[in-house]
C-alpha cells in the first residue's frame, strides 16, 4: 500500500512536469506541423531566467509570493522573445520546405540556444531552492514528499483547464482548431494563418519555458540539462498522438507512472521502457493514442 501510494505520487509529479513541457510541443505540432527540437532550448532558458530571478529575490529576502511571479514572468519573457525571433525570422521562411528540413533547422536552433546559455549565464550550476525549501515536505503514505513538487500537479491541472477552455470556449480557440484541422481551408475562409502561427509558436515556447522555470527550484540548473527533456517530451507527444492535447495528458501520465514503477522495481529498465512504449504505440497505432481527427481529402 505504502509502496503503491509512493509510486503513484512519484509518477504523478513526473507526469505533471512532462505534461507542461510537452503540451507546448504538441500544440506547436498540431497547428504548425513542426516538430520543434528547439523546445528544449525554451525549457532551458525558462529555467535559467527563473533561477537567476529567484536567487536574486531569495538572497534579498523578498516576499515569497514574488518567486511564483518571477517563474511565470520568466516563461512569458522567454516565450515572447525567442518565440518571436525564431518564428518571424527563421521558421516563417521555411513553411514551404520539406518537413524534415524544418526539424533540422530547429535542431540547429537548439544547439545555438544551448551555447548562448553558457555565454549569458555562465557555467556554474544555479540552485534557486528558495521556494522548494520554504514549502518543505509533507508526510504522505509514510514518506516525505516535497510540497513544491506536489504543486506541480496543481499547475498541470490549471494549465490543462485553461487550455481546454481556450480551445473549446473561445473564438480564437475555434479558429485554432480549424487551422489544426485543415490549413488550406482555413486560409480560404479568411483566417490569418501567419498570425495564428506566430501566436501558437510563442505560446508553445512559453509552455516549454514554464516547464523549465517551474522545475528549476527542485534541481540544480546546469548547462546541458535540457537534452534529455527534448526526446522525453517527444516520446510523450508521440504516445498521446502528435497534436492532441488530451493525448499529451495521457501520454505524460503513462510515461510518468511507468517510469516511477520502473525506478522502484527494475531501475535498469527505466529509460528503455519509456522508448519501448513509444515504439509499441507507433507500431500499433501510429497516429498515437489520441490522434486528432484527420480531414478526408480527395
Amino acid at each position: 500500500m505504502q509502496f503503491l501510494i509512493t509510486v503513484l505520487l512519484d509518477g504523478l509529479i513526473y507526469a505533471s512536469y512532462l505534461f507542461i513541457v510537452s503540451l507546448g510541443l504538441t500544440i506547436t505540432f498540431g497547428v504548425m506541423k513542426i516538430l520543434n527540437v528547439a523546445h528544449g532550448g525554451f525549457f532551458a532558458w525558462g529555467a535559467y531566467l527563473a533561477s537567476i530571478s529567484i536567487i536574486y529575490l531569495g538572497d534579498n529576502e523578498y516576499n515569497s509570493f514574488l518567486y511564483y511571479f518571477a517563474i511565470f514572468l520568466s516563461a512569458i519573457i522567454v516565450g515572447l522573445f525567442f518565440g518571436y525571433i525564431i518564428e518571424r525570422f527563421i521558421l516563417r521562411k521555411m513553411y514551404n520546405e520539406d518537413i524534415h528540413l524544418i526539424v533540422l533547422a530547429t535542431f540547429g536552433l537548439f544547439w545555438i540556444l544551448e551555447d548562448l546559455i553558457l555565454h549569458v549565464f555562465g557555467v556554474d550550476p544555479l540552485m534557486p531552492y528558495y521556494p522548494a525549501m520554504e514549502l518543505g515536505g509533507i508526510e504522505l503514505g509514510g514518506i516525505f514528499q516535497g510540497v513544491y513538487s506536489l504543486t506541480l500537479a496543481g499547475l498541470a491541472i490549471i494549465v490543462a483547464f485553461i487550455c481546454w477552455y481556450f480551445l473549446k470556449k473561445t473564438k480564437y480557440g475555434k479558429v485554432l482548431q480549424s487551422v489544426i484541422f485543415d490549413r488550406e481551408v482555413s486560409v480560404s475562409m479568411g483566417i490569418n494563418v501567419t498570425k495564428v502561427y506566430l501566436i501558437t509558436f510563442i505560446i508553445g515556447g512559453m509552455l516549454g519555458a514554464l516547464g523549465g522555470a517551474y522545475i528549476a527550484p527542485t534541481i540544480s540548473v546546469s548547462p546541458g540539462f535540457a537534452i534529455d527533456v527534448v526526446v522525453m517530451s517527444f516520446a510523450v507527444v508521440v504516445i498521446g498522438g502528435m497534436g492532441s492535447v488530451p493525448g499529451a495528458l495521457i501520454g505524460s501520465l503513462i510515461v510518468g507512472l511507468v517510469r516511477a514503477f520502473a525506478v522502484h522495481q527494475a531501475p535498469i529498465l527505466e529509460l528503455f521502457i519509456i522508448y519501448a512504449i513509444m515504439a509499441i504505440v507507433l507500431i500499433i497505432k501510429p497516429e498515437g493514442l489520441f490522434a486528432p481527427p484527420k480531414p478526408r481529402k480527395i
Binding site: Q2, T6, G11, I215, G224, A260, H264
Partner: peptide, 22 residues
C-alpha cells in the same frame, strides 16, 4: 536489494529518493 543507479547527469531524483525512503 535495491540500490539505485541513475544515469550520470540525470538531475532529477524524485523517484529514486522515494525508493530510498521506502
Amino acid at each position: 536489494s535495491k540500490p539505485q543507479f541513475p544515469k550520470l547527469f540525470s538531475g532529477q531524483y524524485g523517484s529514486e529518493i522515494s525508493a530510498l525512503s521506502l
